[in-house]
Structure formats: C-alpha cells, structure tokens
C-alpha cells in the first residue's frame, strides 16, 4: 500500500492528471451557480475548443503565434548567451552593459510593443522585435550569473593536471553553464508568449493574441477561455515533449531532477 502510494506521488504525469481533474470538478460545480455567458462550464468550453479547431482556423493562429515565439526565443537565447558570457568573462564589458541590462529589465513590455509597432509597422517584424527586446535582458542576466558561478576550484584542478584549454572550456565552463542556459530557455519561452499576445492584440491581424482581443470585442467569454486553454495545452505539450525530456537527459547526473 505504502509503496503504491509512493509510486503514484512520484509520477509527475499521474499527479498532474489528478490535479487537473480536481480543478475541473471545482470549476464545473461553481459554474452551476453562474449564467453560462459569464462562467461557462468545462463541458461548454470543450465544445467551444472543438469549434475553434474545426471551424475557426485555430491551427493557423496558433501556428502564426508559435512561429513568432520561436523566432524571438531563438534571438533572445543567442544574444543572451553571447552577451551574458562576454559580461561574465570581461570586466570592462560588464561595467559598460550592467546598467543597460537593468534598464532593459525595467522597460515594460507594452512600451516595446507600442514602439515596435510604430517603428516597424503592423507585422511579424514588430511582434518579433518587441518580444525579443523584452525577453533578452532576462536571458542575459541568467547567463551572466551562470558564468560567475563556474567553480574556480575545478578550473584550478584542471590546471594542475595540465589539461588543454579547449577541454577545460568544454568540460567545465560549458557543463556548468548548461543548467543556466536551460533555466533561461524555459523562462524565455513562456515569457515570449506572454509578451507576444500583447503585441498581437494591439497591432496584428492574426495570432492567438489577436483572437483573444477579437473574443473580447464580441463579449465572448467562452471563446476567450477556449483560446487561452487551447494555447495552454500547446505550451504544456511542448514542455512535456521537449523541455522535460531534455532536462532529464542533460541533468541525469544530478541528485534531484529539476522539473
């Protein structure tokens, strides 16, 4: 009995499933007390989601948004890793850039969204640029921390054993940085989506953000919730299909698995 309970609580997927079921039950019971157009029940929402998929081109809008997220994600990761490493290694670069990282962290995503739309027009470019500019300071900060956290004792050990420079870089620096790259990529990905919907809402004619705004304009709470849930599913899917297995593989040497 005890071991059965343990094996269930240790299984991430089963636990996630149970908590979703609890939430659905809770939601269903509350929705009984409110009118359908204010708080639609889970049953209604699932019907709406099917409708969105088959009648309202959900796949197209999700594809458009995911494409923008993927491009901004790639740019912010690349520039974050590059600038973060330079800042971590070089004191002059650190001194010059540190203020700008903090400034970047404080600029609201809405500011970048509006500026980009005015500068680059109502299109993909504006969406990608605004998202990249908002996410990058976070990835820089993360990697910068990571470079500073490299264990000097390990580097010293390698020097005593006269290890070649490229081997030290690969076996010590890159390996120590990996957890930071991973953590910031996960954060960048979810952050990019939150910012992108704002840009899409203000200035674009497609994408999930646009559809959220469209639903809002038509006072359709059921559509709004449907789009949100649909996109959450897509993000969960990516998490479990890409990030989770990658983390399990990359950090198999760790005592505790990070999730």
């Amino acid at each position: 009995m005890h071991s059965l309970r343990l094996s269930i609580t240790n299984n991430h997927l089963i636990m996630a499933g149970i908590s979703i079921l609890i939430l659905l039950g809770f939601w269903q019971s509350i929705s009984l007390f409110y009118p359908e157009n204010l708080l639609p029940s889970p049953v209604t929402i699932s019907r709406v989601i099917l409708n969105l998929i088959f009648e309202r081109d959900a796949a197209y809008h999700i594809y458009v948004s995911l494409y923008r997220i993927a491009v901004s994600f790639t740019w912010s990761m690349l520039s974050g890793i590059l600038i973060g490493i330079v800042m971590g290694v070089n004191k002059v670069a650190e001194g010059l850039m540190r203020t700008w990282v903090v400034v970047g962290l404080t600029i609201p995503s809405l500011g970048w969204a509006l500026l980009s739309l005015l500068w680059f027009g109502l299109g993909d470019h504006a969406a990608i640029i605004a998202t990249t500019l908002t996410v990058t300071p976070f990835t820089i900060g993360n990697i910068w921390e990571g470079v500073k956290s490299v264990d000097r004792d390990l580097v010293e050990m390698a020097k005593v054993f006269k290890i070649q420079r490229f081997k030290i870089i690969y076996e010590i620096y890159i390996q120590s940085l990996l957890p930071f790259v991973f953590a910031s990529s996960r954060m960048a990905f979810s952050l990019a989506w939150k910012i992108l919907v704002i840009v899409e809402m203000f200035g674009l004619g497609n994408g999930v953000g646009y559809m959220l705004n469209y639903s809002y304009g038509n006072f359709r709470i059921d559509w709004l919730m449907g789009w949100l849930i649909l996109f959450i599913f897509v993000m969960l899917f990516i998490e479990y299909l890409a990030f989770y297995p990658a983390a399990r593989y990359l950090f198999r040497w760790r005592k505790e698995q990070i999730l």
Partner: peptide, 21 residues
C-alpha cells in the same frame, strides 16, 4: 594532486573523471 575536497566533475562518472586528466 589530491585536493582537500575531491573536486570531481559532478556531471561526469567516476570513469569519465579519470579520463578527464
């Protein structure tokens, strides 16, 4: 050199730690 603390690469197995040097 044997250090005060082992200074092993935590992401490498015992065998790989020896191969490192």
């Amino acid at each position: 050199y044997v250090f005060q603390f082992p200074r092993l690469l935590p992401w490498r197995t015992v065998r790989q730690n020896l191969q490192f040097v």
